[in-house]
């Protein structure tokens, strides 16, 4: 089957199962734990969820909404930060100006 997005089968950028463009790329066996930036973003995400300010589903939706060029340019936890900060603004928890 084709795994390329089409108008009839608009596959999301995050919906990566089987994507042909990675067929010939070995999995890079990086075992390092997240750096301080990543751990901090991770911890804040958990706190926001625990306080009922956002769900993990909103985190994912926020990540999936990142425009394609940016999605692939950002690191894993940069995508998380983009998502959670956008969602906190979207929900009126913090004003956008304070992030500029």
């Amino acid at each position: 089957m084709s795994d390329a997005p089409t108008d009839a089968r608009p596959i999301g950028i995050h919906d990566l199962g089987g994507a042909s463009r990675y067929r010939c790329s070995p999995v890079e066996r990086d075992e390092a734990p997240p750096d301080e930036f990543g751990k901090r973003v991770d911890a804040i995400r958990q706190i926001l969820a625990q306080k009922g300010l956002m769900t993990v589903d909103e985190l994912r939706r926020g990540i999936e909404s990142i425009p394609e060029a940016e999605y692939f340019a950002l690191t894993y936890y940069e995508r998380w930060l983009t998502s959670i900060s956008t969602i906190m603004v979207e929900k009126g928890v913090i004003p956008a100006e304070e992030l500029r």
Binding site: L16, G18, S25, R29, D30, P34, Y76
Partner: peptide
Amino acid sequence: YPPHWYKSFEYRARAVR
């Protein structure tokens, strides 16, 4: 924490196929 490779595009795309 999941290791970096588990979150990588390559692993996610290929493991299932």
